[in-house]
Amino acid sequence: MNFDEFTGTVQHRLELPGTGEAVRATRATLTTLGERIQAGEATDLAGPLPMEVDFYLTGAVAEHGQRFDWNEFLDRVAEREGQTAPDDRADVAHHARTVVAVAAEAIPAGQLDQVRDQLPADEGWGNLFELVEADGAQAE
């Protein structure tokens, strides 16, 4: 999957009006996820993704392995995406789940499980992977 296919898929699934919005949603989600997981895991997760997308997980992050919960994750994604109104929270969560599901289509089976293992099961992080589980989207 190349960058245009990736962002086009995100744009289509989120029914966004343009590529810019799809890129913003992708950058916001993956940069924030990159902040939460360990550097090595971010690099592994980024490997199969298009170069322009993998940079969001690895190159744009000041510090990997930060500790924050699901709500803080959504706050950071919302800020980066420019969706800070209280009514935007459900959209932000849906955008994040969709971006992760599209990424899962390019990531080998088991790689996303390693990321999931780094996130606390009891803090709402399972929400991030709902569409992956529903679609069975992971690559083999």
Results as ranks from 00 to 15, higher is better:
97 R>P: 03
69 D>V: 02
85 A>T: 04
90 A>G: 01
55 F>H: 10
68 F>M: 07
48 P>A: 00
106 A>H: 13
73 F>W: 10
106 A>I: 08
71 N>G: 04
56 Y>N: 12
80 R>S: 02
47 G>D: 04
57 L>T: 12
57 L>G: 10
95 H>A: 09
73 F>E: 06
80 R>M: 03
53 V>K: 11
103 A>M: 13
105 E>D: 12
83 Q>T: 06
55 F>W: 12
100 V>Y: 08
81 E>M: 12
87 D>S: 06
103 A>N: 07
90 A>P: 00
104 A>W: 13
50 P>W: 06
50 P>R: 09
66 Q>M: 10
71 N>R: 11
93 A>I: 10
57 L>A: 13
86 P>V: 02
72 E>F: 00
98 T>G: 02
95 H>R: 13
79 E>D: 02
77 V>D: 05
46 A>S: 09
100 V>Q: 08
70 W>F: 11
48 P>E: 03
79 E>R: 08
105 E>A: 11
104 A>F: 12
58 T>F: 12
87 D>C: 03
58 T>G: 10
106 A>W: 09
52 E>W: 10
94 H>Y: 03
82 G>C: 10
82 G>E: 12
63 E>W: 13
64 H>T: 13
106 A>N: 12
55 F>Y: 10
93 A>G: 04
47 G>T: 06
92 V>A: 00
46 A>N: 02
81 E>G: 02
75 D>V: 06
81 E>P: 01
98 T>L: 07
66 Q>C: 06
87 D>N: 05
69 D>T: 06
105 E>L: 11
46 A>P: 00
89 R>L: 06
105 E>V: 07
88 D>G: 04
84 T>E: 04
67 R>N: 02
71 N>H: 09
54 D>I: 03
103 A>L: 08
100 V>W: 11
52 E>H: 09
55 F>V: 15
74 L>M: 06
106 A>P: 10
91 D>V: 02
85 A>S: 03
75 D>G: 00
46 A>I: 02
59 G>N: 14
58 T>Q: 14
70 W>K: 05
97 R>Y: 05
84 T>G: 00
66 Q>R: 15
83 Q>G: 01
55 F>E: 14
100 V>M: 13
50 P>A: 05
60 A>K: 15
80 R>W: 01
59 G>D: 15
94 H>S: 04
71 N>V: 05
93 A>M: 08
55 F>M: 14
62 A>P: 10
58 T>I: 14
78 A>L: 05
71 N>L: 09
84 T>L: 07
103 A>F: 08
99 V>M: 06
81 E>W: 12
88 D>P: 01
105 E>F: 11
80 R>I: 00
49 L>R: 04
78 A>F: 01
56 Y>Q: 11
54 D>M: 09
64 H>V: 12
86 P>N: 02
46 A>K: 08
54 D>P: 02
103 A>H: 12
